[in-house]
Each structure stands twice: as C-alpha cells, then as structure tokens.
C-alpha cells in the first residue's frame, strides 16, 4: 500500500508539473510582466525594460519557469500587484470560508443523494422514482446560478426566510457555522446540482447491485429487505461514489466560484472573480494550479479509499 501511495504521489507530481508548465506558458503569454501594472499603463518602454531587468522578467523563459517552479515548492504563488498582497496570503485568508461552503455542500448532497438513489432503485419505475428522476434531470440541466436566483427570489426576497446575500459580518468559517441561515441558500445551491448527478449515479449503481446474485442469496438467507439493503447493498453500491467524489472536485470548485459570486460570499471563488475583472493573472493562474493540485490529490485519495473499502482492489 505504501509503495502504491508513493508511486502515485510521484505520478501526481509529474501531472502537477505538466499543469504548471501549461499554466506558466499561459501566464507568460497573457501577462509576460507585471511592469505595466506597477508603473502604470502609460509607462515608458525604457522604465519598463529596467523594471523587468530588476525583477528578473527579462530572463529566458526556461529559467523563469524553473524559478516559478521553485516558488511553487515554497508555496509562493506569486504576488498580486492589484491587491498588493502575496497570493498565498490572499488564499490563506479566503480558504477557510470556501472550504466550509464546499464541504458543507458536499456533505449535504451526499446525505440526500445516497438514500435517495437507493430508494429510487428499490422503488424502480414507481411514481416516486419518476418524480425524482425528472427532478434530477431538471436540476442537472440547470445552470447553478439560475437555481440560486430562483431560491433568492422565493426564499429570500418573497418570503424572507433567508438573506439574499451573505452578510458582511460573516468573515470566518466559524461565524458561518454559527449563523446557519446566512449560508443556507449558498450551501443549498451548491449542493443541489451535486445531488442531481450523485443520486443519478447512486441509483444506477444501486440498480446494478440489486440485479446481482449476492442480493438474491442474501434474501435466500431470510434477511428482511431492510437488512439486505443495509448490510449488503449499501456498501457495494457506495463504492463507485467514492471515485465519483474524487472526480467531482473540479465541478465543486467551479460551483463554488459561481455560488460565492452570486451570494457575495468572500471566499476563494469571489477572489477569482475579482481577479478576472482586474486581469490579475497571478491570482488567476495560481488559482488554476491550486485547482489542479486539489483535483490530483482528490483522485489519489479516492483511489486509496477505494482500495481500503473494496477488498477486490489490491494496490501493490
């Protein structure tokens, strides 16, 4: 097992290196030097050239790339000239809030999707199944912000149950946790789209498993339906979900971006949006690299988790 983890980490490293190369190339193409940001748009070419020389932006690309890599290793993601802070500091500030939102949404979507999917599979082709399948389809076809808008319209503006945007007084994850109504709508928005795809997979996986012979043997032992579902079906049907969660990380990050923007929640997503407007490429591309690292790590953790959960998968 350890050998596998080490080898996977090595592969992950290579992947991240590949991503870094692509990102660096993009960065270099889009914004080869922040000189204009610092000196102003109307700066003189001579001033720009000397600023570049001073800060190392005139070196050959390869050298700049390695220095960039070196920075990454030290967790130095660059500097945001627009916001006058190091990117790492910006990330640290916002990460906690974003993590809370994402994890809360993930947990909520799993709590709903797993039993829902199983129930749909067990009661296949009944009215309940059709209703939820239709609902899932609609949610799946909806851009997340549209759902958010609908929720804002009805639950916030019309009925006043929740606030339409997150109040400015919520600055830390703990505060968010303490004031559930503040984050209720963003969490539900982010969770809803995931519920749609998770429960679809769960239903499909549960159906596949229900058709398996071991379910029939479990029944032949005299187990009640509930016992069969709990002690036999649940674990086997959930196995593909582990992989799915790993694969959903990019979607969660994207959803995070849109939700934070919509509800004005100061997290990494909103930071990204601001950077888009500012053309703050250091932040933008650092975000992309972070996203890539999270994705790769997420898949690695999912693979290891599967090997623990499924005895048929032996990693050596």
């Amino acid at each position: 097992m350890m050998g596998y983890i080490i080898r996977r980490l090595a592969t992950a490293l290579i992947v991240v290196l590949g991503v870094a190369a692509i990102i660096f190339a993009l960065l270099h193409w889009l914004a080869p030097s922040p000189a204009y940001d610092v000196l102003g748009a109307k700066a003189q070419p001579a001033a720009v050239a000397s600023w570049n020389k001073l800060h190392g932006y005139d070196r050959p690309e390869i050298v700049q790339f390695f220095s960039y890599l070196g920075d990454l290793v030290h967790l130095n993601f660059g500097y945001s000239y627009k916001l006058s802070q190091s990117v790492s500091a910006l990330f640290k500030e916002n990460a906690g809030r974003s993590a809370y939102l994402t994890l809360a949404a993930l947990l909520l979507s799993l709590i709903i999707a797993v039993p829902l999917g199983i129930m749909q599979a067990v009661r296949r082709n009944t009215f309940g199944d059709y209703t939820f399948t239709t609902l899932n389809f609609v949610l799946y076809s909806m851009p997340s912000f549209f759902l958010g808008l609908i929720l804002i319209q009805f639950l916030a503006l019309d009925w006043g149950v929740f606030p339409p945007t997150v109040s400015d007084s919520i600055t830390t994850a703990w505060q968010a946790f303490d004031h559930p109504t503040q984050l209720a709508l963003p969490i539900v928005t982010l969770a809803a789209i995931n519920v749609a795809s998770f429960s679809r997979y769960m239903r499909s996986s549960a159906l596949d498993n229900l058709a398996q012979d071991y379910i029939r043997l479990a029944r032949a032992k005299g187990l009640s339906q509930r016992a069969v579902l709990f002690h036999h079906l649940l674990r086997n049907a959930c196995l593909p979900m582990i992989t799915l969660i790993g694969l959903s990380i990019p979607t969660l990050l994207a959803g995070n971006l849109l939700t934070e923007y919509l509800f004005n929640y100061p997290g990494l997503g909103l930071l990204f949006y601001t950077a888009l407007g500012n053309l703050d490429y250091n932040v933008l591309l650092a975000y992309v690299i972070l996203g890539a690292i999270l994705t790769v790590l997420g898949n690695l953790i999912a693979d290891v988790a599967i090997s623990i959960a499924d005895p048929r998968v032996r990693l050596d």
Binding site: L26, F272, Y287, A292
Partner: peptide, 21 residues
C-alpha cells in the same frame, strides 16, 4: 497522460482565464 494532465485543470477556470483575452 496528456489527457490526464489537462483533465486535472478545472475546465471552467481555464476557459474563463482565456476568455479574459
């Protein structure tokens, strides 16, 4: 492997970054 590397990058972000230009 190339596909794997590119898949690691969240699609929306990359597209948005490029959309700025």
């Amino acid at each position: 492997r190339i596909v794997d590397v590119l898949l690691s990058i969240p699609l929306l972000f990359l597209v948005l970054v490029l959309a700025t230009k």
